[in-house]
Amino acid sequence: MMATPLLELKSVTKTFGGLTANNQVSFKVQPGEIVGLIGPNGAGKTTLFNVISGYYAPSHGQILFKGKDISGKPPYELAALGIGRTFQVVKPFPGLSVLENVLIASFLRYPKRAQAEEHAWHILEITGLADRAEVSAAGLTLAGRKRLEIGKALALEPSFLLLDEVVAGLNPTEVDLTIELILKVRDQGVTILIVEHIMRVIMQICDRLAVLNYGEKIAEGTPAEISSNPAVIKAYLGETAA
């Protein structure tokens, strides 16, 4: 693990007026890893994703991607650099077909329509959406919309993928399918940072975990270390139960 980390957060802080959503968060993600970002509701996980993917500039601190400072760069530039993301509140283009949704993302690497279409079909196959290609994205089930969210991010051919609660809300079969997909993506060399509340998933796929609570990183380590960490248990169960 001597290589430069793929992603490095250096004391990243994000405030909204008086509210500190991320407080001096630092951690690294090495190439090829799946890192889980966990924490109670409102801990600041989605906000940190928004900072990393360029939707918010950090109030303080730095974000390095492949060793280069990317703090404050807009999302579309980061997409071109290789950062793909999904949204917790899924963002399909509702008036467009599933194929068109993925096609739009495919243009980043394949500016010609014919190649982009070929690529989009390939993504639809991988994500199991090919049979619904012509359906309007608004007509997909919740599971379908989450798959589409992953498909659009994958169509960017990212080297780093941010997944925000792509499993929550799925039934057990769909959960297993999504886990399978995530592992397949990792095996193709994509580094992944994932936010998820479902511990079974986190424990099963993550190499390492970082835990946020009230915007601060309170722990970092392997899933086994984290599940026995007193500070984490306290954060999840609350002051009174601890």
Binding site: P74, A79, F87, G95, L96, I104, A116
Partner: peptide, 25 residues
């Protein structure tokens, strides 16, 4: 209706913020 340009515009019409994460300015 044929070139990528039209679809990109539609993406912006549908969701300007979401489109940015797909590389659209």
């Amino acid at each position: 209706e044929r070139a990528p340009f039209g679809l990109k515009l539609k993406a912006i019409r549908e969701d300007e913020l979401g489109a940015q994460s797909l590389g659209l300015n």
